[in-house]
Design a protein around this nucleic acid. Structure first.
Length: 479
RNA sequence: GGCCCGGUGGUCAAGCGGUUAAGACUCCGCCCUUUCACGGCGGCAUCACGAGUUCGAUUCUCGUCCGGGUCACCA
């Protein structure tokens, strides 16, 4: 009826959602949304042995958190349901039988022993020899009725070649002699992935098939299936793989690149989506930051690259930092709060801490370690009072601390404004650069060379009483 | 091994026969500055190799090398 674009993401519930999967889902989503089309979620669980409990929930939650919302799916319904392959079982066998009648497939009664023996003879790599091709359909049907075990195989042409045009890779052509009579229906009656995929994509009216490039060479087999049924094949958009390094694809076993892992490390969902969109796709202009909606608007299949892309954690960090910085002070305070509390329980003014952290945080999980000086002070030596750039040394620090302590003690209120004013005025009075005074104050209160904030902020974070006591302690180290 | 695909700086990448070969991350330097960071400015660094086509190749063709994928009753 309509020419609406329909794409689908069709994962198998076999474990975690890694970045490569997520990117495929993202591209499928973007391609449909760019054209105002529909995005369908289908669960491909035809392999009962690899099914992992809870995997479906991970798929749901990941897609929801990232905003890849589906228009039709198992939980949502739609006019092409059901959207879980195990609930469509009977369907596939029916179509396979029909294909046998059409001459595109045949029943095969060869047992696994024969197949394995054949493979062994050929040195590990052997195509099925087509022994059962010659069994007349009527006879095969009788054997099936008699209860004999069988599979259904696709009948490949033996000559010529089959080709198709991929939206990314262009024209792909494969000799038919390379193609095996692949199994469509397994002996357990369930379809293989390749078969179920074709049936479902057709029945669900999928117009654009988006998937990894590992399917590139099997696509001719798909098209032969479409042809045998007399159906129009979809557009194919094969995506290059996401790599961990030059040799290895990104995978759960290789590292920690699952979406969930990134979330616990303190990455923002929007940053992850933005980053992986750029892994293998390049926008027209020079802009790199895109929200999901902006991506949908800008996405263009012609920008998808053919070559593999290595996942670069450095750049993700940078992008994540950009997203963090874009947050309003309130938003940042809120999202960082759990991490701030992990670093300090005593601190009163978490808004001040958040404000200091805001421009220095790349990933949230780095926050606690930066705050370790607040609740308790580490021991340090007087060496940290020496800083070349501030021209600070032991002698100057001693003097600065001696003068700063009474000034701070005399402060009626421990606010950032008052502390700042008092210290700036003191420096002016002593006719020294701010840095010369600020350095010893900051290191004495924190005990650290690097802190998320200057002297004024650190005093505020640690609090009046504790700060003064630490300043005196620091001064003591200088004698 | 057969077949398919790919190869621009360390990484992501633009580029479609003539460019000083964009841009981003990283790294380095300078400025700003109350440490670090942020921000600003500047810098280092790339067309895998060899032929051919062409007045001219990063762009086209072939070969070599390197890498990936695929050849399951897995998806």
């Amino acid at each position: 009826m309509s020419n609406k674009i329909r794409t689908r993401f069709a994962p198998s519930p076999t474990g975690y959602m890694h970045v490569g999967n997520l990117r495929t889902a993202l591209y499928a989503y973007l391609i449909s949304k760019n054209a105002g089309g529909d995005f369908i979620l289908r669960i491909e669980d035809t392999d009962q042995e690899r099914y992992v409990e809870g995997a479906v929930d991970i798929i749901y939650s990941t897609m929801q958190q990232t905003g890849l919302l589906w228009d039709e799916g198992p939980d949502k319904g739609g006019e092409y349901g059901p959207y879980i392959q195990s609930q469509r079982q009977g369907l596939y066998l029916e179509y396979a039988q029909k294909l046998c009648e059409l001459g595109g497939a045949y029943y095969c009664f060869c047992n696994k022993e024969r197949l394995e023996a054949m493979k062994e003879q050929e040195g590990g790599i052997a195509k099925y020899d087509g022994l059962c091709r010659s069994i007349p359909l009527a006879q095969a049907l009788e054997r099936v009725a008699a209860g004999e075990a069988f599979v259904i195989r696709q009948k490949m042409p033996t000559e010529g070649e089959t080709s198709f045009d991929d939206a990314v890779f262009g024209h792909i052509s494969i000799e038919n002699s390379e193609l095996e009579d692949q199994i469509l229906i397994k002996s357990d009656g369930l379809p293989t992935y390749n078969f179920a995929n074709v049936i479902d994509d057709h029945l669900m009216a999928i117009t654009h098939v988006v998937r990894g490039s590992e399917y590139l060479t099997s696509t001719p087999k798909y098209n032969l299936l479409y042809q045998a049924f007399g159906w129009a094949p979809p557009e194919y958009i094969h995506c290059p793989p996401v790599m961990k390094d030059a040799q290895n694809k990104l995978s759960k076993r290789n590292g920690d690149a699952s979406y969930q892992d990134l979330m616990t490390k303190g990455y923002l969902s929007a940053a992850v989506i933005n980053y992986i969109a750029l892994l293998g796709w390049s926008p027209k202009g020079e802009r790199e930051k895109f929200s999901l909606n902006e991506l949908a608007e800008a996405f263009d299949i012609s920008g998808i690259s053919k070559s593999p892309a290595i996942f670069d954690g450095e750049k993700l960090r940078w992008l994540n930092a950009e997203y963090l910085r874009e947050l309003s002070p309130e938003e940042f305070h809120q999202t960082a709060l759990p991490f701030i509390r992990e670093g300090t329980q005593k601190a009163q003014d978490t808004a001040l801490i958040a404000a200091c952290l805001h421009q220095r945080t790349e990933i949230l999980s780095e926050i606690p370690a930066q705050l370790d000086f607040i609740d308790s002070q580490f021991d340090y030596t007087s060496e940290i009072f020496v800083n070349k750039k501030s021209k600070s040394g032991a002698e100057s620090s001693k003097l600065m601390l001696e003068r700063a302590i009474p000034v701070l003690e005399a402060l009626p209120q421990w606010t950032q404004e008052d502390i700042h004013e008092a210290l700036i005025n003191l420096a002016a009075e002593l006719e020294v650069k701010n840095g010369l005074l600020m350095w010893p104050v900051r290191v004495a209160v924190s005990g650290k060379l690097v802190t998320p904030g200057g002297a004024v902020e650190v005093l505020g974070m640690v609090g009046r009483e504790e700060s003064l006591s630490r300043l005196k302690l620091g001064l003591g180290k200088l004698f």
